[in-house]
């Protein structure tokens, strides 16, 4: 049991349910493998890894009172293990190549404006470059014909946020029940929760939510 900080769902940890009827063996195995993702790059170079790390930290900033979800490692794993989306925009190269080109281009854009690589910029400047990428305004030759906006929408946002919300720690923040098999849910109506669902801390009832979330099993 890890006490998550006072948020909407104080004390709620979906991992507490790991050994209950809410998790079956196949799900336990899947989550175990996910939590054991290699933390070192297998696809990216050291320089790309720095840029990717900085980008992940701006796209999904994480609280500093818990170990961060290793987002770059999941992006790397998706490429290394060839987990494809099932479609590719005609203007984008395959995912590994798109990432490689995009990260290099982001560094080139940072060098161009601030004479330093992306990861060395302060967060505001990093955000400003992201905003220009999202608006489709980055056009240095390093993009090599790949529209920065398409890259941002379908690689940066997709791969990083999907990795974040695939991690059990993120489910705690949402009060999401997480795995549910064989046990699903009983109380379906508005404003009802099963005892194995996260209790939300309504104003003035934080202690009660904390108490209930310790028994979410």
């Amino acid at each position: 049991m890890t006490d998550s900080p006072a948020g909407r769902y104080p004390g709620y940890d979906v991992m507490d349910k790991r050994d209950t009827q809410s998790w079956d063996q196949v799900t336990r195995d899947v989550i175990d493998r996910r939590l054991a993702v290699p933390r070192e790059p297998r696809f990216f170079t050291a320089a790309e890894w720095e840029t990717l790390g900085a980008l992940c930290a701006r796209i999904m900033p994480q609280p500093d009172d818990r170990p961060p979800i290793p987002l770059p490692a999941y992006v790397d794993a998706k490429i290394t293990e060839r987990h494809q989306d099932g479609y590719r925009y005609a203007t984008l190269p395959p995912q590994g190549e798109a990432w490689r080109r995009g990260l290099a281009a982001l560094d080139a854009e940072a060098e161009e404006v601030h004479a330093t690589r992306y990861h060395a910029l302060d967060p505001d400047r990093q955000d400003a470059l992201i905003a220009r990428m999202q608006a489709g305004e980055l056009t240095l030759p390093a993009w090599d014909g790949m529209p920065c906006k398409t890259f941002f929408e379908h690689r940066v946002l997709g791969d990083i946020t999907h990795a974040y919300y695939a991690h059990p720690v993120s489910w705690n923040e949402l009060g999401f029940g997480g795995p549910a098999s064989p046990r699903g849910y009983v109380r379906m109506q508005l404003d009802r929760r099963d005892p194995w669902e996260a209790a939300e801390a309504h104003p003035g009832e934080e202690d009660r939510a904390l108490r209930e979330n310790r028994h979410v099993v």
Partner: peptide, 14 residues
């Protein structure tokens, strides 16, 4: 029901 009596907290109710 799914999970049978092991999942009694759901199945006794549903």
């Amino acid at each position: 029901q799914m999970g049978g009596w092991r999942n009694w907290r759901q199945n006794v109710l549903n």
